[in-house]
Design a protein around this nucleic acid. Structure first.
Length: 944
DNA sequence: CCACCCCTAAACATAT
DNA sequence: TATATGTTTAGGGGTG
């Protein structure tokens, strides 16, 4: 175990190279029965997980020199042949041009250049983050406000953030680039002019101003009331000192008066709320009218299964008509009485056995629940698959303001959790345990701090979002010059409108009400009212009467997994188990702009026990490239995981094993040894190579996630299951958004472009969607990206410039193979191969020639190599060792059969294909053996 | 049913 | 010897 650098420690620039006793000189214990040695079978060394981080500081930081490297298998090494055949190129880290290392974070905002970046996805994430923060904030605020006489503040806060919330809750699903494109297309058709947007924004601003005034007013009023209460309390205490009350439950003299106080407070709170609601409804009505007028609800039409074919030219008139109809329908539905808040609580309740609302998510307006349309209830119920209705919740009898304090039959007062059978019991409990005393006030103060901090964070995140939008707006303007493919709906003005509507607090909700539906209520205005609590995007993507534009039928069959922003309960209980994995099953891999996502949502991931929607490989890579020197020890990677993700603070044995597994498995991770140990680096080219094919996870998620990736997304129709998966997977899964967009729009405007992109630039297509969204000509974008990719490959990227000789050789070898210029003779290979196999009596063949090889019969390296080679040969465009999928399948049983195990290697078969990769290790070894040295491959290399 | 993807678990090997 | 680190295999569940 190496002393590891503390994660937060600034790496030392000093490195003592020490001596030259390179690790690679270690001799692998020869002897065919190496496996018989040390079979202690240590079961999971992880069990002694070193949670206690080595905080030891170490001097091998930044310029850790990774000398070495001729190691073949990441650790074992040593034969010349093996050294030369190493799949994982080793390199001298001092040559690593870290400054040029591809940093997604930086390139993110440069959009065009970052294959992995999709600006809109970033925005989605950002918005989701906001929503999350907002929700946290709400939860905290409601806890705080209910008992502390400040429901007004709470409500005001809700109003204050409702726009953000609305945006987050609603825009997100529609924010996938596809939908965005459609939106922009709509906008471009003058459905909503910038002036109109401006008007809406102003209206919203006024509303906000009004809310502020109301808040001030109520603050004063509240203060006044409090003073009165205090005076009255003093009076009573003076009048009846020490006298017990006749209340059966009360044990304290002042009990009754306190009850009265609370009652008064509650009443007052209710009054305030009602007033606020009225005001908000007014605002909503105004905004709704404006919306109708503006016809922004076009998105509704889109969302409700009337996709506009990318190529079709819908006339503004038609669109307008459609919109008006849509708006009329929706408004009639939602305005029956109280806005259909179809709370997400229902669906979210799934996670709570008692079907009670979870803390912090209880709506202020309990009545609105009852008043929501039957459709909404029905659909919600169907979705949540939760037979019990909300009306059965015990807390219903509570004043709305107190509801956050009581859910699931438990008191939600911080660190209380007392169980109460009903509201009466809860009232009793409140009176007994949470009286207005020092403790309670202290707790309130703490809660206030929590809220304040969340508030601050929310503000910060909002600023970030605004900045992003500003940037995009500029970018959109820049892209103006480019020709606009008709279907991309890009360009300037539209981007600006888009960003305007987002950046401004007010209009956002209203403007996007049309497309916010999926996650919230249908009425934009309503969002101002209670949307905050609906923010929990994921959990109820489909709560509205029309499920936000999705035909209810779509969701009628199956229940959606409840995925509260913190679906920690699920994950925590199941993580580590297979079930746990199922919850968050599919991961986005490289397809998602992970760095941007992590950057934008770092706080979220850090605090929320949510499994990040990325593959281990993506995360590991991200961890590594985030370091200044682009290298990390295993322990540092561990630390990174734990530092960045709350999720990875649990079940360390499991995920650490997975991390190691991934490091070993994927060729894109290169182990580099130095004197003090080993560090892991990322072979960016390898990593990039694998991206085109794999968007990780099932094809479904490819479609859902990799909005910009070619082929799979566009081609594959969205299935219901996929959408459900998307909804359930992760509260902030972009997959949801993409899938919703896909489902709503029916098709992706980019689909005609994606498949034409050159292989190997999967990330480019990804960016393409982004660029297209902000107004960049797609063709040009493709060109730019290709150029960038080339540049990165040949001069910028460390993976190219630092390509180890071995790696370059490998590439040349590949090309030479593909051009049939290899001079390796089959017989030689076979011979070599056979001799190798003869050596192995135990599963592990001895090899002084490099990587350990497994012999036949299920010892599979032979088969592994075989299948691997086959695959490689079959798919010229993919790197052979590149991937997990290959390796995964290679390792799977279906890749080889028992019969195969009898055959040393089907070399004929392998060689009959284009040798595109290095081939299997066996094959490789055979070649190496035959040729004696990898260097020889150079001789036959063909310049590309 | 198959191929593929990603994941977890675990056995095993090796270095410290 | 114990532990950390790496490698590899096995198999499960999901998807198209």
């Amino acid at each position: 175990m190496w002393p590891t650098r503390f994660e937060n420690e600034e790496p030392d620039s000093e490195l003592n190279l020490g001596d030259n006793s390179y690790q690679q000189l270690r001799q692998f214990p020869t002897g065919s029965d190496a496996s018989s040695v040390g079979r202690s079978g240590r079961k999971s060394s992880e069990s002694v997980d070193n949670e206690a981080e080595n905080v030891t500081t170490e001097s091998s930081g930044q310029s850790r020199l990774n000398i070495n490297l001729n190691n073949n298998s990441k650790r074992r090494s040593n034969s010349p042949a093996s050294a030369s055949t190493n799949n994982k190129a080793l390199r001298l880290s001092e040559e690593y041009p870290t400054e040029t290392f591809f940093k997604e974070n930086l390139t993110a905002l440069n959009g065009k250049g970052a294959p992995e970046l999709n600006a809109l996805e970033l925005l989605q994430r950002q918005a989701m983050q906001l929503a999350y923060l907002h929700q946290q904030h709400q939860a905290a605020a409601s806890l705080k406000s209910a008992p502390s006489l400040s429901p007004v503040e709470d409500a005001n806060r809700r109003a204050k953030h409702s726009l953000t919330a609305a945006f987050a809750a609603g825009v997100l699903p529609g924010n996938a680039s596809a939908l965005s494109n459609q939106m922009q297309q709509l906008l471009s058709q003058q459905v909503l002019s910038p002036q109109q947007l401006q008007a809406i924004m102003q209206q919203q601003a006024m509303s906000a101003h009004q809310a502020q005034q109301i808040q001030d007013f109520y603050r004063q009023h509240q203060k006044h009331i409090q003073m009165q209460l205090a005076a009255s309390k003093q009076q009573k205490e003076a009048a009846n000192p020490g006298k017990t009350d006749d209340s059966s439950e009360s044990r304290f003299g002042a009990k009754l008066s306190k009850d009265q106080q609370q009652q008064m407070q509650q009443n007052f709170a209710l009054q305030q709320l009602m007033h606020l609601q009225q005001l908000q409804q007014q605002q909503q009505a105004t905004a709704a009218a404006a919306l109708q007028q503006q016809g922004l609800a076009a998105a509704m039409a889109l969302a409700q299964g009337r996709p506009m074919p990318p190529g079709s030219d819908v006339s503004p008139a038609d669109l307008q008509q459609l919109l008006m109809k849509q708006v009329a329908e929706s408004s009639s539905t939602m305005r029956k009485d109280a806005p259909p808040q179809t709370n997400l609580n229902s669906s979210r309740k799934m996670s709570s056995p008692s079907n009670m609302t979870s803390p912090g998510r209880v709506r202020i307006d309990s009545h609105s629940r009852e008043s929501s349309s039957g459709d909404a209830r029905e659909s919600t119920r169907r979705i949540s698959n939760n037979p019990s209705s909300r009306e059965s919740s015990p807390e219903l009898g509570l004043p709305a303001a107190l509801q956050p304090l009581f859910s699931r039959g438990c008191c939600r007062w911080p660190s209380c959790d007392k169980e109460c059978n009903d509201t009466a019991a809860f009232h009793r409990h409140l009176n007994e345990s949470h009286r207005l005393d020092d403790k309670s006030t202290a707790q309130c103060r703490v809660q206030m701090q929590v809220v304040g901090s969340l508030d601050k964070q929310l503000t910060m995140e909002r600023e970030v979002l605004n900045a992003m939008m500003s940037y995009l707006r500029m970018d959109g303007k820049d892209g103006k010059a480019n020709a606009d493919p008709p279907n991309l709906g890009t360009s300037n003005g539209k981007a600006e409108q888009f960003s305007n509507s987002i950046t401004s607090n007010g209009p956002t909700a209203a403007n996007f009400s049309g497309i916010t539906l999926p996650f919230g209520s249908q009425s934009g205005p309503n969002l101002n009212n209670r949307a905050p609590n609906n923010l929990s995007l994921p959990s109820s993507p489909i709560s509205g009467p029309q499920i936000g534009g999705f035909p209810p039928a779509l969701f009628s069959t199956t229940s959606l997994p409840s995925s509260p922003p913190l679906f920690s309960s699920q994950l925590s209980s199941s993580s580590g188990s297979r079930e746990g994995m199922l919850q968050g099953k599919r991961r986005h891999s490289a397809a998602v702009p992970i760095s941007a996502d992590l950057t934008q949502n770092q706080e979220f991931y850090r605090t929320a026990d949510v499994r990040p929607p990325f593959t281990y490989a993506s995360l590991i890579r991200q961890a590594i490239i985030e370091t200044p020197d682009c290298q990390m020890t295993l322990n540092e990677i561990y630390n990174w995981f734990q530092k960045k993700f709350a999720y990875f603070r649990r079940n360390a044995p499991t995920w650490k094993n997975a991390v190691r597994h991934n490091l070993s498995l994927h060729k894109c991770f290169v182990r580099v040894e130095n004197v003090k140990g080993a560090v892991w680096t990322v072979d960016e080219s390898e990593y990039q190579k694998r991206r085109p094919q794999k968007f990780s996870g099932s094809p479904a998620i490819r479609g859902r996630v990799d909005v910009g990736s070619s082929q799979s997304f566009y081609g594959a129709p969205m299935s219901l299951a996929s959408m459900q998966m998307a909804f359930g997977e992760n509260p902030f899964s972009q997959a949801q958004l993409a899938s919703q967009a896909q489902a709503m729009l029916g098709t992706n405007p980019l689909q005609n472009y994606g498949s034409f992109l050159p292989a190997g630039f999967g990330g480019i297509t990804h960016s393409l969607s982004s660029d297209a969204t902000v107004g960049m000509d797609i063709t040009e974008a493709a060109n730019n990206l290709s150029a960038l990719a080339n540049a990165r490959r040949h001069s910028i990227s460390p993976t190219s410039s630092n390509h180890s000789i071995k790696e370059e050789s490998r590439e040349r070898f590949l090309s030479s193979q593909s051009s049939n210029k290899t001079s390796v003779k089959l017989e030689e290979i076979e011979e070599s191969n056979e001799s190798e196999q003869r050596n192995g009596s135990s599963p592990h063949l001895s090899n002084d020639v490099g990587p350990k090889i497994y012999s036949s019969s299920k010892d599979g390296e032979a088969m592994n190599g075989n299948s691997e080679s086959e695959k490689e040969f079959c798919s010229p465009s993919r790197s052979r060792d590149d991937d997990m999928e290959e390796r995964g399948s290679r390792n799977s049983m279906d890749t080889y059969s028992a019969e195969d195990s009898d055959k040393p290697l089907n070399l004929h078969h392998n060689l009959s294909h284009k040798v595109n990769g290095e081939g299997s290790s066996l094959l490789r070894q055979g070649i190496m053996s035959a040729r004696g040295s990898f260097a020889m491959l150079h001789d036959h290399s063909v310049a590309e």
